[in-house]
Simulated scan of single mutants.
Amino acid sequence: MKNLLFIGPGAIGSVLCWHWQPHVKPWVFPHRPDMHLATALLDADQSQPLHWQRWPDDRPWQDIDLVVVTTKAHQVMAAVTPLLDHLPQASWLLCCNGLGAQQWLAQQAPNRVLWASTTEGVRPMGDGRMQRSGSGLTLLGPASGSALNAATQQRAQLLLEPKSPLTLEWRDDLLPTLWLKLAVNAVINPLTAWHGLRNGELLDAQWRTEIETLCAEIQTVARACQQILPNDLVERVLAVATATAHNHSSMRLDVEAGRHNEIDFINGYLVRQGYEAGVKTPRLALWQQRLSSRQPPS
């Protein structure tokens, strides 16, 4: 494998580029006109240069082996669709919040899609660099219910070969991990975004009833979808709030910056799954409606 093409060269794209660039050539598809490439990643006070470049218009698409998509969930369809016909043999890796975009991409490129989930912490510094704010675990696996073709299996193994600087592991079934992350985000993100809170402020007793109510609804939807979430989901949410106490959630940052947020792929996904299963989700729907009202005009 020689060439990776990134779509969405933001925080997570930057840290993945840093990990893989010693082994493959990283390129970037300019999916929006105002896109800027981070020049470096700051890790433990060491500035690590990022070597990605924009994909040239005159280079043949068949040179691309794998596409790494790290856009916001609501951007995936618009960013990916123009490339699907150009890349009939390429493999795809999607790492984004929420659920829904993953299933859509798996339908567009059967047997060629990998899913990913990461707990890496990365934030922009505002000067063309990214700051790695916390090391984590990055999981890769096949799209749920999909048997990967031979080329994608081989490319997945090559992605896993570098042992540093990130920690990557393979999961044959990544869907439970994505559901747990979805569940936590469906509580933390809308509450912090609507009320302008840091994550750790949700530990205050005034939010306990709302957290418990949301977790109960999420558990009901998960069971209806035959997904098993931990019985201690409330404690899991509080543990994440504790571990990221000083952080602003991505949804809060999007709302405060006047950008589109991912509520339709987080709470909205759970509301839709509940509707299809005949499960009522009044609190999840309330938070979807509230954060939808904070979306800028299309």
Rank of each mutant, 00 (worst) to 15 (best):
L238M: 15
D63F: 02
L229K: 06
Q227I: 12
A183F: 03
G278F: 03
A106P: 07
L139H: 12
A216E: 09
Q102V: 01
A79F: 06
V240I: 15
E212A: 15
P82G: 05
R236I: 04
G13Q: 02
G134T: 12
K72L: 05
A222Q: 07
P297C: 09
Q102A: 03
N3Q: 11
R112C: 06
S133D: 14
W115F: 14
V279A: 12
L50V: 06
V221T: 05
W27Y: 08
N3T: 11
W115H: 15
P162V: 10
T177R: 12
A243D: 15
D232Y: 02
A285R: 10
P56D: 04
G258Y: 07
Y275F: 08
Q107S: 14
G100M: 09
S250N: 05
T220S: 13
F265S: 10
E262V: 06
L158T: 08
W18L: 14
E235T: 12
L16K: 00
Q89T: 13
G141S: 07
D63P: 02
V184M: 08
P176M: 10
R283S: 10
N267C: 14
Q103G: 12
E169G: 09
P297D: 13
G126F: 08
M125K: 11
Q206R: 12
R223E: 11
V271S: 03
K181E: 02
